[in-house]
Design a protein around this nucleic acid. Structure first.
Lengths: 237, 237
DNA sequence: TTACTTAGTGACGCTCAGACATAATATGTT
DNA sequence: AACATATTATGTCTGAGCGTCACTAAGTAA
């Protein structure tokens, strides 16, 4: 049989297939703490529960998995996050009562300000402090995904400046350090952090300064290659 | 509508769904080089081409994605690899002529000896030297997946002893070092490598020695926590 | 002017990777 | 038996960079 004949006879619905969704754990930093974007479900299963933004692929408009998850995020936040990365894919026969189900989960970061207005204007999406999220029941296995995303981001705080994407630009160096400290759950030596930042050469000094109690702090932006830069040595916290 | 009513009316075939497969990039180390297991396809599309071992989920026997990919590997090698890790999930509307298609791809490592007999006995599976694989046309986007798996493993050679899972136990320390050197494409200072291995405390000294020209070398096994151990500092190669 | 607060620097020790000389232990040759 | 050779393993020095902490800088408030 030639490939042409095979395709002519091919029936996409002949084989039973699995439920496939994309989801995103979108973090930001606000009020001195990490927050994650959750959406209140308007459909079964888990109707009324809070869960991760995401959903099914739309074959009409989504060219790829990443386009699909970005579309889902954009529907809620009206913007595209400056950082997104595939986290993992979770699939088994137990996670959804409808049957064998698979989710491709992403981790994303963005500033609180970038979408504050949009989020405040809708009732079904909300930034949740990470500590609070651990206390409430979530849809599906989304709690597990959030924990895993957080662990990965904590690791990144040790050897990259990726957490900076959770801030709105321009930001001060102590602000960036504090995001890392919140992720690690421990204080970082300011001197060590500054040394690393300087050596990495990932921050653009805007020349501006911000003052709020104490000596004014320099304001920086992230260079575009921050997402892929890795330090050779981890912080030892 | 209650959830029970929703589920009673739920038709799994009502929504168009995507092709979903699992694939694995299985590496080993043999004849001083890295090899990858490829399978010759017996179906359209890409009939007759070499590609990664993998295939569709079998809802009857697979409880999870990982079980599915392990089953696929076991069908070819007759054994379960000592190391497996999710690599990435690739999904878009162009990678398969049959339509929107998604693969959840894993990276795995195992020793050459563990399945040599089984592989030699079948005609459709074969260990390919990695350099050769880059020269031949592969099915789908499997070349891209192999390259990505190799890059990730190269990174792991800088901050872990995971590449050791490509060896058969017991192995010598210079053998382990050479796997790392092949991955990195550069020689490593023997002293640095030994220091790290000792400090990590991941090798069990079997007390045995192996001699083949020169001073006999100690033989080691990997501790089970080698898969998750990370050095704080990278090799600087 | 002084106290206070926060931002940023200087200087020293420690750990560990790189580099390379040296020792140890086997085989093969004379 | 003595020696050459090959390979494994160790000793030691140097340097990069993190931890630590004292100190300086630059703003606000009393």
């Amino acid at each position: 049989m030639t490939e042409a004949e095979y395709l002519a006879n091919y029936d996409p619905k002949a084989f039973k297939s699995q439920l496939l969704t994309v989801d995103a754990v979108l973090f930001t930093y606000h009020d001195q703490q990490l927050k994650v974007l959750l959406v209140q479900r308007s459909n079964h299963p888990f109707l009324g529960f809070w869960g991760l933004p995401g959903g099914f692929i739309d074959e009409h408009c989504d060219q790829s998995l990443e386009e699909a998850v970005l579309r889902k995020l954009q529907e809620k936040t009206a913007v595209v996050p400056p950082y997104i990365e595939q986290l993992c894919t979770l699939g088994n026969r137990h996670r959804d009562v409808r049957g064998w189900s698979v989710t491709v989960c992403y981790t994303a970061l963005m500033s609180y300000q970038a979408c504050q207005i949009r989020i405040d204007s809708v009732s079904d999406a909300k930034w949740w402090p990470l500590a609070d999220v651990l206390q409430i029941p979530l849809a599906f296995d989304h709690l597990q995904l959030i924990k895993q995303a957080r662990e990965r981001l904590t690791q990144k705080a040790l050897y990259s400046l990726v957490p900076g994407f959770a801030l709105s630009e321009p930001f001060t160096l102590p602000e960036l350090q504090h995001v890392h400290e919140v992720l690690l759950g421990k204080p970082i030596q300011g001197k060590s952090f500054r040394r690393r930042v300087e050596q990495a050469d990932l921050l653009i000094d805007t020349g501006l300064k911000r003052t709020e109690r104490g000596r004014p702090a320099n304001l920086y932006r992230l260079k575009s290659d921050t997402a892929s830069y890795r330090f050779l040595r981890n912080l030892e916290c």
